[in-house]
Nucleic acid binder design. Structure first.
Lengths: 200, 200
DNA sequence: GACGTTTCTTGAACGTGTTCAAGTCCCGGA
DNA sequence: TCCGGGACTTGAACACGTTCAAGAAACGTC
């Protein structure tokens, strides 16, 4: 119903009617309308993993693995682009249980981070040990950035988001490789300690 | 009223009553409740500029200027942290006129970007010509990131956000300096062309 | 089968943002 | 002074998300 009518026009009364129950009963199973989206959220996480699986099984290079997972994420989200705005609207609020940073959605978040951990672990990339530990979370954060761009992407078929992925992946790949360079070591360490400070 | 009661509890009826008019009349002057926030938005922009002015007049180094402007931004926003979540909630929706990327809020956005242009222009920093042109917008984007972090920052007095600024500014400063390095030239150009591709 | 308790279900009712037909005010021109 | 049209103002009405007291069903225990 979300996909067909959008978020606003999918009323709780309509949802209840479609389910063949009374309005109030919907609130027995879901705390609020927002919580209906959370179901959605968890579903796309699983699908993301499934769609990304073949690429992760096939590719060994860091760049193609990362690109594969990012593209898979956008692939899964694609059908919902029209109402993803409202999705994002509620997710952006810190107090919302839907926020990707909230404790309530820590399960799907961990699953998503694990996906990026796999991207790195299964690759042949060589990098700083400390960076290796932190990078998956950073990649996930970058993925959140991609989604944020995608939500605002008005280009037909969200081509720009694809360009973003294809453009940023080799850059990240390059930077990860450079991180072991002597000139950049101090910057790398500086960045990593900052990240550790800011993590809650 | 927003500050005292928060966004949700500031009803349009209460706003109208406080203004001494009927409910419907509020909608003659403001298209929606969200548009009340936009007024707020424009106001803080002006204040940001005012608070940042002394620092920009005093400092000449790129790092202290950037840090000053970023801290000024957080200073101005500070009193509204409790309800900034809802603020952000509506701003995150792409279709919302409140979105910092929307055409409707292009005026305050331009003003904000100009502030970061001033950060760079008034500094003694030496950097790649093309980067010099693009950097202000990137700094603004980074500022949006700082605000995003600030909104989610639950630490007392939002200390973490201050640490983020103090940690990230020298990093940016260092990277900007390194951008002229021979080893990093290709990466810099690669990043810049990507950015130009993605800009609408 | 009868009971008490928990789980589930109902739909009216509340407060909200928003709309709109109707009305009032204001001001320039005949 | 009157008229006409635009600017402003009103508050009832609408649809929505959400709550809640009341009831129905299911279940375990004797």
């Amino acid at each position: 119903m979300f996909r067909e009518r959008g978020y606003a026009r999918t009323t709780m009364r309509a949802v209840a009617q479609e389910a063949g129950v009374a309005v109030g009963n919907a609130y027995y199973y879901f705390d609020s309308k927002e919580h209906l989206i959370q179901e959605f959220y968890a579903e796309t996480q699983h699908e993301h993993r499934a769609v990304a699986a073949p690429v992760l099984a096939r590719e060994r290079g860091f760049a193609p693995r990362l690109a594969g997972v990012l593209h898979a994420g956008v692939d899964v989200l694609s059908p919902y682009h029209s109402f993803a705005g409202t999705f994002f609207k509620t997710a952006a609020e810190p107090t919302s249980p839907l926020s990707p940073f909230s404790t309530e959605s820590s399960a799907p978040r961990e699953a998503s981070v694990a996906l990026f951990r796999e991207v790195l672990a299964g690759s042949t990339a060589k990098l700083d040990d400390e960076l290796r530990e932190t990078l998956p979370e950073l990649l996930w954060l970058g993925y959140m950035g991609v989604v944020l761009y995608w939500v605002h992407d008005r280009s037909p078929g969200q081509v720009k988001t694809r360009q973003l992925i294809d453009g940023v992946v080799p850059l990240v790949d390059r930077l990860v490789g450079l991180s072991r360079l002597r000139v950049l070591r101090p910057v790398t360490r500086q960045a990593l300690t900052l990240i550790h400070t800011l993590r809650h």
